Computed example of a mutant assay.
Amino acid sequence: MSDLKRTPLYDLHVALGAKMVPFAGYEMPVQYKAGVMKEHLHCRAAAGLFDVSHMGQVILRADNPEVAKAALERLIPQDVLGLGEGRQRYGFFTNDAGGIEDDLMFANRGDHLFVVVNAACKDADVARMRAGLEPDVTVKLLENRALLALQGPKAEAVLAEHHPSVAEMRFMDVATVPIAGAECWVSRSGYTGEDGYEISVPLAAAQELAQALLAHEDVEAIGLGARDSLRLEAGLCLYGHDIDDTTSPVEGGLTWGIQKARRSGGDREGGFPGDDRILSEMQKGADRKRVGLLPEGRAPMREGTVLFAVADAETPVGTVTSGGFGPTVGAPVAMGYVDAAHAEIGTNLFGEVRGKRLPVSVAKLPFVAAGFKR
């Protein structure tokens, strides 16, 4: 643990009784005193506060903002030029083989783009952007801001007490809002499937803001354990598990994140790494697909569980990439990849758990309906 970095909220986590664990090079809270189950259910019912300061916050800036947008389109298959000011999109870096190098969020903040990338890929992503965008675009990794996520059906009411304008924001809106005396960059987004906000705040104000939000009776601190179970129930991918540099966006079920302008026949078709494979698979289909999985009984099927078409088959048809108990569902849930021939909802399969072949069925994603304010 001595070689790990700490977020600006480390001392607050310890004071709140968090169990700290290594994660993506940081000491992070996996759970607090209440435990993962109660934290998960509290976020679904009220509001949870997450420290996501380990993630990378990056500014892309050019003399002409349109230059920065066009340049970013060379690295990702999303429509950046068509993104309006004050709006945000989900995206992903792709490689020449059509795999996903990382997923990300990017926002149009008028004179610059604001990009948030995963902690484990932060250094590689910044290097990728500098190699692909400079000298036309300045790539700046911010070291002076923390990042918090306030998630849950009561998040709007809680944050609106600090600034009423946040209640008017729609899903994927971004705005600069003064909260607890600090200039915060707020987006109406998150990775739990619930309504909520992500808040970029200056380091010096991070602890004061966190304490101000936690002072509300509806807000509890939530750790990585519940963050993982929340995103799994919401059918959201965890990079390095459900998607990686070998997974295409088509296999991963992420083609909704590729806008019309970048698809076949669009006015800016292709022009991103791996476009041959990705556009071909979008038209013809992929050999395997990411699917939801509902194991029978109470035994979870964890990452790495091998899937078979029939109980006594020798050749597997898929693998679980994320799995655990879904507190909201009240049963085990999982995601994984199966051959396209076995990907139809309702298909019965078998997962090998501790030497036994247990029944599991292909299920519709998400397991819990999204609560986004559109």
Rank of each mutant, 00 (worst) to 15 (best):
E352V: 11
P327Y: 15
R109P: 14
E143W: 00
M335A: 04
K373C: 00
T176C: 02
D339S: 07
L142W: 11
G266T: 01
A15V: 08
N108H: 12
A210E: 11
V360Y: 11
L236E: 03
E314W: 00
E85S: 07
A24Y: 08
E27W: 06
R298T: 15
D102I: 00
D195Y: 06
I258E: 04
L214D: 14
A175I: 02
G152Y: 13
T315Y: 07
V116D: 10
D136S: 15
A131C: 04
L236Y: 14
D218Y: 08
A311G: 06
V368Q: 12
I222G: 08
F325L: 10
S361E: 09
L238P: 05
H342P: 02
L83W: 02
F23V: 09
G270Q: 07
I278H: 04
C237K: 03
K154Q: 15
A120N: 13
G323V: 01
Y197M: 05
R354D: 14
A124K: 04
A206T: 12
D173W: 00
V52H: 06
G265Y: 06
G271A: 12
G330Q: 04
I199R: 09
N64S: 01
T247Q: 06
D218Q: 12
L294V: 09
G271L: 14
Y191P: 00
A340R: 09
V58Y: 02
G330I: 12
P29Y: 05
G48M: 10
A299Q: 07
F23P: 06
Y337Q: 05
D123E: 09
F106A: 06
E161G: 14
R277M: 14
A146R: 14
L293N: 05
G330T: 14
G132L: 02
D267P: 11
G223P: 05
F367K: 01
F93D: 07
A340K: 04
H42M: 15
R268Q: 11
G271C: 11
P29G: 10
V368K: 09
F367L: 08
M55G: 12
A71V: 08
S187M: 11
I199G: 13
R227M: 15
V320H: 09
R277G: 08
F171H: 11
D275P: 08
V353R: 10
